[in-house]
Design a binder for these strands. Sequence first.
DNA 1: ATCTAAGCGAGACGGTACGTCCTGTCTTGAG
DNA 2: CTCAAGACAGGACGTACCGTCTCGCTTAGAT
Lengths: 197, 197, 197, 197
Amino acid sequence: MTAGVSSSAHRNGPVRSDDARRAILMATAEQFMAKGYERLTIQGIATAAKVGKQTIYRWWGGKADLVAECLVEGVLWDSGMVVGDTGDVVQDVATWLRLLLDVDQSGAGESLRSLLGAAAGDESLARHLDDLMRGQLEGGITRRLRLAHERGELADQVDVALTTELLLGLVMVRTLARRPSRTEELEGLVRLLLDQR
Amino acid sequence: MTAGVSSSAHRNGPVRSDDARRAILMATAEQFMAKGYERLTIQGIATAAKVGKQTIYRWWGGKADLVAECLVEGVLWDSGMVVGDTGDVVQDVATWLRLLLDVDQSGAGESLRSLLGAAAGDESLARHLDDLMRGQLEGGITRRLRLAHERGELADQVDVALTTELLLGLVMVRTLARRPSRTEELEGLVRLLLDQR
Amino acid sequence: MTAGVSSSAHRNGPVRSDDARRAILMATAEQFMAKGYERLTIQGIATAAKVGKQTIYRWWGGKADLVAECLVEGVLWDSGMVVGDTGDVVQDVATWLRLLLDVDQSGAGESLRSLLGAAAGDESLARHLDDLMRGQLEGGITRRLRLAHERGELADQVDVALTTELLLGLVMVRTLARRPSRTEELEGLVRLLLDQR
Amino acid sequence: MTAGVSSSAHRNGPVRSDDARRAILMATAEQFMAKGYERLTIQGIATAAKVGKQTIYRWWGGKADLVAECLVEGVLWDSGMVVGDTGDVVQDVATWLRLLLDVDQSGAGESLRSLLGAAAGDESLARHLDDLMRGQLEGGITRRLRLAHERGELADQVDVALTTELLLGLVMVRTLARRPSRTEELEGLVRLLLDQR
DNA sequence: ATCTAAGCGAGACGGTACGTCCTGTCTTGAG
DNA sequence: CTCAAGACAGGACGTACCGTCTCGCTTAGAT
C-alpha cells in the first residue's frame, strides 16, 4: 500500500470517461450561472454536455451533487476576492466588504443567492460550500486580519475567526435581503469590530 | 371617486371566500413544515385544502406568494423568541442566541433553512421575511439591547441595529452550514460585541 | 329531467376532449401502419397528436389499449373484404381466400402480422381483434357460406362457423409463416371443405 | 483444408466459448418461459448467463436470433405431443387436438402466444418456427394421418398436409383468441375433416 | 324576481422534467 | 482474439406538477 495501490481488487472494463465528467461539470456551471439553481435541469445539462442522462445519474445523485462538485472543482466561484494591504486594516477590511456587497448588487449576487438556496436544501452541498468559503476567506480576509493582529493593530480580545464569521454573516443577511449598504456604515461597522477600545 | 358615489365600478357576484383562503394558508403552512419549500406543490396544497387549483392561482402567483402570506399571517414562524431580562445583558443575549441555535440543531432549523432557501429564490418573499424578522427582533433582542444601552451597560459606540444584524447573520451562517455552537463560544462572542472596552 | 338520465352522480368540471381522443387514435393508426406495433411509442403518438403524454395515460393503459380502440373504431382495418356471389360457392370462397393471402404477400400483411403479434401479448386486444374479425367475417364469407347452405350447394354436414374458422386459421398460419399459396391449391382446399361428398 | 495442414490462415486466440453459448441459450429459454418474448431483454439474459452483453451481440443479432436458436436447439418447445394409435383415427386426432388446446388453456399457452408474437415480428424466427412445427407435426399428427390414409380409413380426397395445416391453423386461432374448445365440437370437426363421405 | 357575472370544486389539457430501464457500441484488462 | 464487466450516447418509459382552461354549480348585487 506504500506508494503503489495494491493492484488486486481491480475492476476490469472501461473506466470513467473524464471527457464526459468535465463536459457535465462545465455544462452545470454554465447553466447555473445562466439560470440559477432552481431552474437547472438534469435533462438540460445532459443535452448541453452531449451526454446521456444516465451518465449523470451514474456518478451523481442529482443537481445538488453536481453543483457541489462544481464548487469543489472551482468551476463555479471565480471570486478570488483578494484583500489589499494598505497598512490600515480597517480601511482594507471595509473595502473588501464593500466590494463583496457591491458585487452582490450587481449580478453575481443572484448566483450567490442561488447557491445559498441550494445549500439550504442540501446538507452535503452546504458543507461543501461552507468549506469552500472558509478556505477562500482563510486565504483572504482571515489572513489580513491575522497579519493585523501580529502587527498589534487589533485589540487583544478580537477573535479573528469569529470576526470573519460575523462579516460573512453580514454579507449573507444583506445578500438574501437584497439590502444595499452604505460605505460609511460599513466603515463604522468594521471600526467597531476591530478597532475597539 | 371623490365623494364615493353609490353606483359605478361595483362588482356583483360572490366575493372571495375566506374559508378557502384560510384553508389554503393552513395547508401551505402544514406542507411547508412537513416537506420544506422545495417540495411544496400547488397541487398538493389544493388537494389538502379541498380547493380547486384555480382558486389558488386566482389570488396568488405561486408558492412564493403563498409562503410569503403565511409569514405575514404568522401561520408560519411561531418563534416569539422572547429575550429575558436578568439584568446581565451579556447573559441574556447569549442565552437567546444559544436557544436560537439549539432550536436549529433540533428540527425547526430545517424550516428556517427552507425559508432561507425560498428567500434566496424569490425577492418579494425575501423582503417579507426580512421585514418580519426585523419586526420580531425589534420586539425581542433589539429592545433588550436598547434597554441595556439606556442603562449604560453597553459601550457608547455599540450600534444596536448593527449588532442585531450581526447576530442574525451569525445565526444564518451557522444554520445554513449546520454547524453547532458551543455555549462558551457564544458568550465570548456576545461579550466581544457588547462589553467591549 | 323528464326522459333524461338520472341526473345525480354527475361529475362537474371539464369533459373529455373528443378532439384529443380522435387525434390520438388517428396518430396511433398512422404510426401503426407505418411502423407496426412493436415500434409504436406513446411518446411518438403524443407528439404526432399534439397532445401531452398524460392525456394518453389518463384514458388508456398503453399501446395495446390504444390499438384495441383503433380496431373497435375501425380506424385500423379498412378491409371490407367482400365476397362475390357468382353462383359457384367454391369459386367465390377460393377467390376471397386468394385475395386475402395475396394482400398479405403485398404490404398489408405486415400490418396483420403486427396485429397478431400484439394480440399474442395482450388478452384484451386479442378479444377485440377476435370480435372484430368474426364480425367482419359474419358480413362476408360467413354470409356467403350460409347462403350457399340454404341453396343446398353444401353438403349437410358442413358447419358454416367452423369452416369459417378453419379458413381464418389457414390465413393466419400462412401469414405468420410468410408462405405464399398457389391458386390451385386453394381451390382444392375449398372444394375439400365445402364440396365434399 | 484436405489434410488440415498445420500453419496457414490459422486464427490465434481462444475460440468461441461453448460454455457461454449454452449459458446464454439456457438463460434465454428460462426468461422466455418466465416473461414472454416482449419482456425479454438482452441485458437480463446477459446478467442471468453471467456473460458480457458483447458476447451476445458478437454471435447473435438480437432477441429474435436468440429465440430462434433456442427453438432449433430444442431448448424451448418440449412438446413432443405424440399422437396415439387406437385404430380409430378420428378419436386419435381429436384427442391430440384437445390436448393441444387444453395445454393452451393451462399455462403453456402463454409461451405459444409469445412465440407467435415473436414470429409475427421477425421473419427468420417465423421461418424457424414454421420449420420446427412442420417437423414436429411430421413426426406426430401427419404420420398418424398418413398411416390412416394407407389403411384406407380416410376418404381419397383428404390431403394429409393440408389437413395438418388446417388443424394447426385452428389451434393458432383459438390460442390467440384465448377461446376454449368443447370436446364434442372438436370431435365433430375432426370427423368432418377426415371421415367425410 | 330575474338576471348577470364572479367565485367555487373539480379536473382535463399541452407541456416539461423526472429518475429508471434498455439498446447497441465501445473500452479495458485478463486469459 | 474471446471473454466478463460495464461505461457510453441515445431514447422510451410511466409519473408528478406546472399553469391554463372549462365545466356546472352557487351566490349576491343590479335591474
